[in-house]
Nucleic acid binder design. Structure first.
Lengths: 250, 250
DNA sequence: CCCACTTTGTGCGTACTTTCACAAGGGCGT
DNA sequence: ACGCCCTTGTGAAAGTACGCACAAAGTGGG
């Protein structure tokens, strides 16, 4: 056997908590976290299909592209509603819309990136943002020698303008790409300014109050997980690995 | 209510498969994937404690720092063996060694990064590598205009030397930081050259044969997951969120 | 209008995770 | 030495996730 982890979870939700109260409506808002994490993967696959002119797709085919089990994919989609047609499959364009809506991508989210080093620049230049419901509202850094520089068409602002930017641009998601030592401070300022969702690239656990979502992406952690599996392979174990691909799930 | 996801899983293992045959030895090699994903987080927390001169730490305190439930932390560590002392806690230095060993960080792993754009540079300059058992053996790119440039002290090589580098430097982990369109091709070459662990930053699912581990980190997927939760908050739901922090787990 | 074929949506069993709660174990003061 | 207090390690319960297998539901041909 073997393994394949594609999409590994080094990013992880910090915790959970029931969510979805006890209201119990028709189809109560209760999409499993694991499903939410895979929806973006399906969305990407669907967009590729759409661009290639494919009108409909079966769960089998879409699952193949997304790298998951087809039953899992159907169950995931069933949480959104019954958008498929038996005997036919799913209409690509319609499904793209439904998933986008569910993920909240039909509205625009303003993002502010703090820490414009190589990683911050990579993020700013990452094409996937603007095209998927996100708008980079500002790039901020503490280093005055780069403040004013143009990155991805935007002038880098000074970190001290964070609060102003958050308010004026209605920033709802803060991205931290600073060194670990500055992360908590930036995070606190984001929260103080009203931001309730933070994407943290700094290698440290952020301390945040209830109500704030933090997702963390840690490059070295991913490598460490790979090292673990790599070690196992040479340990003389007849292990199998993994295949399939979760989508950011954890 | 509230939430905090810290460490979210946008990175996800593609699949699994039993692993750990039917041998059943004393304490068979069977560390849960969820645990493996958290070990790097504990390791980082422990290293911080070590640097600040703390000799021992209780599961309660370490869990607090790492952002997880203390019972979970104890259970995770129990998979490695009994390295704690009741009534006292864990000896920081000893635990660092044990986790490092388990993760395979006591040996050096050679890493080759392909795609030296902003992201590739960010990765190359990321301090967490060298200090944690990883050695960047080569930086490769297809763009001849940057081949030869010095990045993080290394000269960028041409992608055509990939096979040579993998063999000479004994590369065991390949990092793909290229555009999506080039990712599969690079991945195939890595595999053909003998690499069995790949860390993919390109926004696409890689197709790999059994025996190869692929972990994927997708920036836009993380943002989409945050958008989903952010949307829920304003949906008028009295949701709770999450707290705690998984560590790259799936 | 009916039948054969295809593909969805899901009930169900299994496996994995998380968390609680507590017994077992070790240190320290007296 | 004894006993109290603290913290680990873990059994058991609860919650989640996964994937199989199949009934339900459309499609299209005859």
């Amino acid at each position: 056997m073997s393994a394949q982890l594609q999409n590994a979870p080094t990013i992880a939700a910090q915790e959970h908590t029931p969510v979805t109260p006890r209201t119990s409506q028709p189809r109560e808002r209760g999409i499993p976290e694991a499903t939410v994490a895979r929806l973006p993967v399906y969305l990407r696959a669907l967009q590729a299909l759409h661009e290639s002119g494919t009108p409909t797709v079966s769960s089998e085919d879409l699952a193949e592209i997304a790298g998951v089990n087809s039953a899992k994919l159907r169950k995931d989609l069933s949480h959104l509603g019954s958008y498929g047609t038996r005997g036919v499959g799913y209409e690509v364009e319609y499904l793209i819309y439904q998933i986008s809506r569910e993920l909240g991508l039909t509205q625009d989210w303003s993002v502010a990136i703090v820490g414009i080093g190589n990683l911050g620049r990579a993020l700013a230049n990452y094409g996937g943002f603007g095209t998927r419901g996100f708008r980079i509202a500002a790039l901020l850094d503490a280093d005055v020698s780069i403040v004013g520089d143009k990155v991805a068409g935007l002038a880098v602002g000074h970190i001290d303008t964070l609060e102003d930017v958050v308010e004026k641009e209605n920033v709802s998601i803060g991205v931290i790409a600073t060194p670990a030592s500055a992360a908590q401070g930036v995070c606190d300022r984001f929260i103080e300014a009203g931001v309730t969702s933070v994407l943290n690239f700094a290698p440290m656990v952020l301390n945040v109050p209830p109500g704030v979502d933090v997702r963390k992406v840690d490059l070295s952690i991913e490598l460490q997980i790979l090292a673990f599996h790599e070690q196992r392979k040479s340990d003389g174990h007849v292990e199998s690995g993994r295949i399939g691909q979760t989508g950011n799930a954890r």
